[in-house]
Amino acid sequence: MGTVTPRSCRFPLPELPDCAERDWARRAIALLTGDARRSADTHLIKPVFPGLEGIDIYLKDESTHPTGSLKHRLARSLVLYGICNGKIGQGTTLVEASSGSTAVSEAYFARLLKLPFIAVMPRSTSVQKIHEIERFGGRCHFVDSSAEVYAAAQHIAVQTGGHYLDQFTNAERATDWRGNNNIAESIFAQMEWEANPVPQWVVMSAGTGGTSATIGRYIRYRNLATRLCVVDVENSAFYDSYCSGDLTTTCVQGSRIEGIGRPRVEPSFLPDVIDHMIRIPDAASLAAMHVLSNRIFRRVGGSTGTNFWGLCWVASQMRQAGQTGSLVSIICDSGARYTDTYYNEDWLGAQGFDLAPWTTALERFLDAGSLDLSVS
């Protein structure tokens, strides 16, 4: 009888690949993991305000990350998300639409992985943030308004054959909201041995919406009694959308508080995990920024001011209701990035800001606890 050749041998099969890209991905993830392990978790500080007896205030200080902001966590997650989905490989150009802090952190990780990085941002972005992006080897591409960043970033990614990190879509997807050392898990772990370990409220602002989505989901996942209040600013679509339920809401002008407030409702903004929203004037945000900076002896940014004013408003509501307990908010970044704007008297004057009434009201509240901080 003749020898029978197996059917599979009648067709040429490709050789096994060398999997060079997979090897690069493994090395890249090892670098990102090593960087994370070298960085201790951020502090949860507890400033004392005489007028708020019975209400413990905690501030999660994200400014101590290696790139100086809350966005360090997001940037690492976005890069990992791109690698693990096979979208980022050796030599891939990373592109982002950003008002600054996310791009600073992404430029840091791009340099760590030896990848090109391009940030698309409004021309009004603070000079300090631009310099930090460039210091990490990134390149900045400017557009006239914040509404233009999305299309420009997508176009550059196509042109370069790169990957659009797209924080506004992927922020809520790239972060594991159930844990894995996200900001929510960190906050509640650090609160565990406090007198009131389960906060009455977590109060924060929204930029991509990713952090509020993570915290809101985590609270529900852990079956905690904590509620989430999100504070919006002028020239932002989030608050109006939350009130109306219309996710197509837009805003013509861009926010003057860098890093938060958006001209459209971003895909990562999840209103259904938020328990309450308020909107406050930009002058209140900046006044609160100055007041908190003086109270903790170092400068914070404008988005932190928004958070702090919102936290004080919640505290005022608790006092009126005779409630006690703990409140948590976030220090998003350092005020060092805003010396030419929010901490510059000439700039504030040119913008028409009068912070004095807001500053006086907040100082009186923190010292005496007797002022109604209602926001119309």
Score class of each variant (00 low, 15 high):
40 A>Y: 12
244 S>A: 09
365 F>C: 00
133 I>R: 06
103 A>F: 06
103 A>I: 06
309 W>A: 08
167 Q>N: 02
28 A>S: 06
180 N>C: 04
125 T>H: 03
50 P>F: 08
321 A>K: 15
88 I>R: 07
375 V>T: 12
241 S>V: 04
277 M>G: 01
50 P>G: 08
309 W>C: 04
171 A>Q: 04
57 I>H: 02
368 A>E: 08
308 F>L: 05
328 V>K: 07
351 Q>D: 00
33 T>K: 13
150 Y>N: 05
46 K>I: 03
280 I>K: 10
83 I>N: 02
179 G>Y: 06
316 S>K: 13
77 S>G: 03
100 G>C: 05
21 E>W: 09
93 T>N: 00
177 W>E: 00
310 G>N: 13
107 A>W: 12
245 G>I: 11
125 T>L: 02
38 R>G: 12
101 S>M: 06
325 G>M: 04
34 G>Y: 05
137 G>C: 09
290 H>V: 12
42 T>W: 06
207 G>H: 14
250 T>G: 00
276 H>D: 03
133 I>Q: 00
312 C>Q: 06
302 G>T: 10
211 T>R: 11
127 V>L: 13
321 A>Y: 04
83 I>R: 05
285 S>Q: 06
280 I>Y: 10
221 Y>T: 10
261 G>S: 05
232 D>W: 03
1 M>W: 07
147 A>M: 09
42 T>H: 09
262 R>A: 10
336 A>R: 15
292 L>Y: 11
100 G>H: 11
146 S>H: 10
60 K>G: 00
84 C>G: 01
328 V>N: 03
100 G>N: 07
355 L>D: 02
120 V>W: 01
181 N>V: 05
56 D>S: 14
232 D>M: 03
27 R>K: 15
297 F>N: 14
128 Q>E: 15
182 N>Y: 09
312 C>G: 01
326 S>N: 05
62 E>H: 08
149 V>P: 01
237 A>R: 12
142 F>G: 01
166 D>A: 08
206 A>C: 07
153 A>W: 01
19 C>N: 15
263 P>A: 07
234 E>H: 06
220 R>Y: 02
218 Y>F: 14
180 N>W: 02
175 T>H: 05
103 A>G: 14
242 Y>F: 15
296 I>F: 12
228 L>N: 03
335 G>R: 13
135 R>V: 11
299 R>Y: 12
121 M>E: 01
175 T>K: 07
236 S>F: 08
348 L>T: 07
186 S>A: 12
356 A>W: 11
189 A>T: 15
209 G>N: 09
109 F>I: 04
15 E>Q: 13
113 L>Q: 04
289 M>T: 07
327 L>G: 02
58 Y>T: 09
233 V>I: 13
336 A>I: 13
21 E>H: 08
116 P>T: 06
